[in-house]
C-alpha cells in the first residue's frame, strides 16, 4: 500500500470566493430529521457525512435544473429527496464561500423508499491555500451515526450505497 501514495492524483481546489445569497434563492432547506419518519411516495432518504479540517455549512445539489441546498447538522445531512439523479454542484464552507465541482464523479442516484448513503464529503487543507475535496466512503461512521441517532429509520428502510461506491459492508 505504501507505494500507492505517489500515484494518487488529488483534486486540488483553490478557495473560491463568491458573493451569492443562497438563502434568498428560494431553494429548499434540508428537512429536519424528525420529519423523515414518513417520507412521501417516490422519495428516498439521502445521507451525507462530513470529514473536514474546515467546517462544511451545506451542499448544493441539482437535478433537472433545480437546485437544492442541504444543510449539515452534527456532521451529517439527512434529507428526503425525490428519486432520480443529482449532481453535487457546490460545497459551502461558510454562507458565501464554496468549492465548485463538476463532472460525472459528482453525480449520484437516489432510490425511493431507501436510505441512500452518498458518502462523506472530505475537505483537507494542503499547502499554499490549496484544498483536497472528494467524497470518501466512511460507511462505518455512517452506520454508527444511524445506530445512535436514527435507529428507527434503519428498521423501516433498507440501506444502500450510492452509485459512487459499490460497497458490500454490512449489506
Amino acid at each position: 500500500m505504501y507505494y500507492y501514495e505517489k500515484y494518487f492524483n488529488f483534486l486540488r481546489c483553490t478557495i473560491f470566493l463568491a458573493e451569492c445569497a443562497t438563502t434568498s434563492l428560494g431553494v429548499k432547506r434540508t428537512p429536519i430529521p424528525e420529519k423523515l419518519d414518513n417520507i412521501k411516495q417516490g422519495e428516498g432518504i439521502i445521507v451525507f457525512g462530513a470529514d473536514a479540517s474546515i467546517g462544511i455549512d451545506r451542499v448544493e445539489v441539482s437535478a433537472e435544473g433545480k437546485n437544492h441546498n442541504l444543510f449539515f447538522s452534527d456532521g451529517f445531512i439527512l434529507s428526503a429527496m425525490t428519486e432520480g439523479t443529482y449532481e453535487i454542484k457546490k460545497v459551502f464552507f461558510s454562507s458565501y464561500r464554496y468549492f465548485e465541482t463538476s463532472g460525472s464523479a459528482w453525480s449520484f442516484k437516489v432510490e425511493k423508499g431507501k436510505i441512500n448513503y452518498v458518502g462523506h464529503i472530505r475537505i483537507k487543507s494542503l499547502k499554499h491555500q490549496q484544498f483536497l475535496l472528494d467524497i470518501t466512503n466512511r460507511a462505518s461512521f455512517f452506520y454508527e451515526y444511524m445506530e445512535h441517532h436514527h435507529s428507527e429509520l434503519t428498521t423501516r428502510y433498507p440501506i444502500i450505497y450510492s452509485n459512487l461506491f459499490s460497497d458490500n459492508f454490512l449489506i
Partner: peptide, 17 residues
Amino acid sequence: DIKLLFNQSNIHNSDEA
C-alpha cells in the same frame, strides 16, 4: 477491506489508480 481499496473515493480511485 480489499474492496474498499478500489472504491474509497470518487476522485482518488481513478482507473489509473
